[in-house]
């Protein structure tokens, strides 16, 4: 398949460049909102909406924004869309608004969104950027739902709030608490590594290179990067 065809731009976000399991971006919301499947879906949809909108706007403005102040500009664009999405969710699905709490405004500093602006939207045209946003957003949502499904079934013996009768007596509370989040995430990264071995641009180490602000911090001379 042609590497730059629209289809492959869309599809790469799903597995081979999955933002959560391969690019290791957006770890905070991934760990925090996957206690319940409902929360994971809410976070996935909200982040996808912000990602598509911000990718489109940043791609439209890519020739207007001066290079040296691009990150602050991106943050303002992203924060505006986050505020819009936050208000819509507050108005129409207040239960999800309560469930996500502070993680909703924190989509602003989600590395996936800033990362796609920096890596993709400021180099490509509007249609491609929108497709990239959709693919990455879907990949993020799928990863969140997969993790939340595991955690909710094991930890609360339910799926999306509907309890599973024969598991009722075998709840392992560990999985819906904070430590379970780290454990499930670690194991899932290892599984995806095994499945996509050799094909994905896999990041085995967590370093500054994965962070979209790397180019910005210390003017491209990101110090902790060297020690890792």
């Amino acid at each position: 398949m042609n590497k730059n065809s629209n289809m492959s731009i869309f599809l790469k976000g799903l597995l081979l460049e999955n933002p959560v399991f391969v690019l290791i971006l957006g770890t905070c919301p991934t760990l925090a909102t996957t206690k319940t499947v409902i929360g994971a879906i809410g976070m996935g949809v909200a982040a996808t909406a912000v990602l598509i909108c911000s990718n489109i706007v940043i791609s439209l403005l890519r020739k207007l924004i001066p290079d040296s102040v691009r990150i602050p500009c991106y943050i303002v664009v992203i924060a505006s869309f986050v505020t819009i999405v936050e208000m819509i969710i507050h108005a129409f699905v207040p239960t999800i608004y309560e469930l996500l709490g502070v993680y909703l405004p924190l989509i602003t500093v989600n590395c996936i969104i800033l990362g796609r602006a920096e890596m993709f939207a400021n180099k490509n045209n509007v249609a491609k950027s929108a497709l990239d946003g959709l693919g990455m957003g879907l990949g993020f949502s799928i990863a969140l739902v997969a993790m939340a499904t595991l955690r909710e079934i094991l930890g609360a013996a339910s799926f999306a709030g509907i309890s599973i009768p024969f598991l009722e007596n075998y709840k392992i509370k560990f999985f819906v608490e904070a430590p379970g989040g780290f454990l499930v995430y670690g194991i899932l990264i290892a599984v995806v590594y095994k499945l996509t071995h050799g094909k994905a641009p896999y990041k085995k180490e967590f370093s500054c290179a994965t962070c979209p602000s790397a180019a910005y911090c210390n003017r491209g001379n990101c110090q902790p990067k060297e020690e890792i």
Partner: peptide, 8 residues
């Protein structure tokens, strides 16, 4: 190796 072990 790497990140998964760190997360665990």
């Amino acid at each position: 190796k790497g990140l998964p072990a760190t997360l665990i």
